[in-house]
Design a protein around this nucleic acid. Structure first.
Lengths: 242, 242
DNA sequence: ATCATCTTCTATGTATACATTGGGATGAAA
DNA sequence: TTTCATCCCAATGTATACATAGAAGATGAT
């Protein structure tokens, strides 16, 4: 057979190209040609083609009508809708979990994550790195809580776009936020979401999850509005035009 | 360059394999090997690999951990969730259109489609073939009504699974329905949806779209429950196990 | 008999040569 | 100058030979 997907040239090309696209190393909308990319990566066209196809699947490349690929560009509206979409999908996951009754073990895991996030706060300070990590765990657990392969798969897909993921605009080194207040209200939403699901309140769970995703939208608008300085550029921000 | 995607071996392999998968020619869960498939199609492995990748993207094939692909199998719950997902996405499209104000021209197009569907009814009879076609048009228009590339793309993706599409369980030759009543109530939902969007009633539009998708679920349960005879097998039904 | 290791074979990963097509450059004619 | 036809080339499509890893089976020792 072959490797589990690791150690192959195709996989390394996928990772490498994803990185370069997200950092904006290729210009927005720039067409990518197999031959020069293969030369750059010192591999043949075959694994490059493979990687291109997967990047198109992820939504980072566009398939051009006549064949070939180009770096996809996102308008601000595209990003806003992608965030809204995540909210809707997570809302669906939360509602289904509530309606069908969540797996008690998985729900307990989520409760533990919430408690762990509480530990990120001390006075006015927030351990943003740890918060970001646990926040991702929370959202991953939410996606699987309803036990629906279909919805889990779809959430995974939708959050592959870096600015649509729950961790978007929450980089480890984020110190650009004017106040740490938003982290606390986000955590209150985490708590309320778990309570609603446990109480089988599907509609409320749906609404909370949607509103929760709006935090990302708020952060996006803040990042785009102010002239914020980043220690390192936010991944994918380079793909947003205007 | 090369062709726009037509006339290539890869494209023909994609179409051919999709057809064979949906008709259940390959057993459910059956692993597909590049070499024998390539020999069957009388082409080389290269376009077959390409087609496999795209079919995995569509959700018809699973990528196996160690490499390779297998025909994906769907449980009844998977199908129900896929239908529910379509309802949620179409609900989002309807809500966004209502909230943001739909393109008047597109809305007018939808109104015309609704009127055209009215023409499918005469007394107790329903022109199912024409209904099915116009119904697809309606849902396609709905996906684009909000003017959101993101949501349109996602709806297209979700409805690529044949049993999740609005036309599922509505084959041209469908005469297995016990009553034509359901077509009329579906049409009432079409009408109400357009009215709600026009009146900027986002929540109502969302609710109607979700409920509308439930018709497909109802039909699915009918098809699975009774021992219905089909003139030709419903596409994709062969992939549903249990 | 059981386990470990080695071999072998199979299926995918990769490189590369060749095919093909679409577009752009080039040139001639109006 | 404009327009049309032709040619050429660049980029992707395709075939195929070879590489490689993983699994299954064979072989041997204990």
């Amino acid at each position: 057979m072959s490797k589990a997907g690791a150690n192959t040239h195709a996989t390394r090309a996928l990772v490498e190209l994803r990185e370069r696209i997200l950092t904006g190393e290729f210009g927005v909308g720039m067409r990518l040609y197999e031959v020069p990319v293969a030369e750059q990566l010192k591999i043949s066209r075959t694994p490059v083609r493979d990687a291109f196809g997967r990047l198109a699947e992820e939504g980072l490349l566009d398939r051009l009508p006549g064949g070939g690929y180009a770096v996809r560009t996102f308008s601000v509206e595209d990003v806003i809708d992608a965030i809204e979409l995540r909210g809707v999908l997570e809302g669906m996951a939360a509602r289904l979990a509530a309606e069908r009754g969540p797996d008690p073990h998985k729900l307990e895991t989520m409760q533990k994550i919430v408690i762990a996030i509480d530990g990120c706060f001390s006075g006015e300070d927030v351990n943003i790195g740890r918060y970001s990590e646990l926040n991702s765990d929370f959202h991953e657990a939410l996606a699987g809580l309803a036990g629906s392969r279909t919805i889990q798969r779809e959430i995974e897909r939708a959050t592959k776009l870096p600015f649509a993921s729950p961790a978007a605009f929450l980089p480890e080194n984020a110190r650009y936020f004017p106040q740490t207040h938003s982290f606390r209200s986000a955590q209150e939403q985490h708590r309320a979401l778990v309570v609603a699901i446990e109480a089988r309140e599907g509609t409320r769970a749906d609404a909370i999850a949607r509103e929760h995703a709006r935090i990302a939208r708020h952060n996006l608008e803040y990042v785009l509005g102010e002239d914020v300085n980043f220690d390192q550029p936010l991944p994918g921000l380079a793909l947003i035009v205007n």
